[in-house]
Design a binder for these strands. Structure first.
Lengths: 211, 211
DNA sequence: GAAAAACATGAATAGTGATTCATAATTCAT
DNA sequence: ATGAATTATGAATCACTATTCATGTTTTTC
């Protein structure tokens, strides 16, 4: 019965040796508690300073419990990166969904990004740190975003909604702006209201520096 | 012209307990070898994967020799971050020094940055990782850049060379573009020639997306 | 050309923290 | 109600690596 055959049940799990999935509500709650604690602790202290002990302490469970749901420290980390990607894509597409005007979509996408980042600063830092802890997850995260962004820009240019120009480089440049402004508030603690930052940046994105 | 006159000849010791400074040419060479090896190894493997042993092996010295010149693993790291800051400021001010046109200076600054980053990819990654390994050094690095950038933009706006607008947010946004494009090539291995990337980005910076 | 200073060595130390595991408690299925 | 499955515990293990240090070598000094 419990032979570990093909688990092609309901989880389209991509990864190889993932910690056991919880089978009861109790287990589900514990798993979530650990995941939330990991987000908080790793986001605050960084991957290497955050010990399994500090995570389980924060979660209110014993150290060994961690390994019931995750097979390693790296695994929770990766899961958090993937989670961030999912949430962010959702939030942004939600915010820009029905927008006809590409330039306005640009503004709302930026606002949604900065708002989300401000609401989950630890998760944001985790994605940044993924560059060093889990390069593959990091690259996947950015490639996915960049590709979507690139397409949007290419279509907008095609449709004559924006000036033509290399959509690939532009996508990276615009993601760079969003990222830098997120860092400006999360890492450097700037307190300028998001709406103000968004308007200033949007003005730059749309009309540039030229007088 | 090295009229910059930036640092004093040789600072005795900026930090608290720094490893002993070499007093002979031999010592100086060894110190440099270790610093270069650290740049290479840490930049490639990341701070935590890079062991002192792997650094000294790369440098061709014994493990204990490391501690003659550096008091800890963190210390080499910090020194590399500071070094990157110095070099980059030098390279950029060199490239934009005599430029009258602010918008052209923007282009050349970006080109200088990307060229430098491409020539020292490991050093670039180290600065990124500093956010997690040595947050103080990281913040100092960016604050310094941001402040210079902000001033330049504010003066240009004052002089009517560019459109008025919040120089602070703009500085961060523009630094974000540079950084993202650096990462695009170093981390994601894009092969678009620098000059092309620079022109595309510069076009965006100067005239924006609007048709 | 000696003693001193500076430099170099690499094996030993020592602290850390991820992971395991034997055991126990709780919940589920019938 | 009861055996099976699942979940939880936390002390012990175990590998890893930064740092130290006693000793040896090279360079400088006079």
């Amino acid at each position: 019965m419990s032979e570990t055959g093909t688990p092609a049940k309901d989880q389209p799990d991509r990864d190889a040796q993932t910690g056991r999935e919880p089978k009861t509500a109790r287990g589900e709650a514990t798993r979530r508690a650990i995941l939330g604690a990991a987000e908080k602790v790793i986001g605050r202290q960084g991957f290497n300073e955050a010990s399994i002990g500090s995570i389980t302490r924060e979660a209110g469970v014993a150290q060994g419990t961690f390994y019931i749901y995750f097979s390693s420290k790296d695994e929770v980390f990766s899961e958090l990166v993937v989670e961030m990607g999912r949430m962010l894509r959702h939030v942004i597409s939600e915010a820009t969904g029905g927008m006809a005007d590409r330039l306005e979509a640009e503004r709302e996408g930026l606002r949604a990004f900065l708002t989300f980042v401000a609401s989950r600063p630890e998760l944001y830092r985790i994605v940044q740190e993924a560059q060093f802890v889990d390069p593959d997850a990091y690259r996947a995260y950015f490639r996915t975003f960049a590709e979507g962004y690139r397409q949007g820009l290419a279509e907008a240019a095609e449709a004559g909604a924006i000036r033509p120009g290399n959509a690939d480089v532009r996508a990276w440049a615009l993601m760079g702006i969003a990222r830098a402004l997120g860092e400006y508030s999360v890492v450097f603690g700037d307190t300028t209201p998001i709406d103000e930052v968004v308007d200033i940046a949007h003005d730059l994105i749309v009309d540039g520096l030229r007088k």
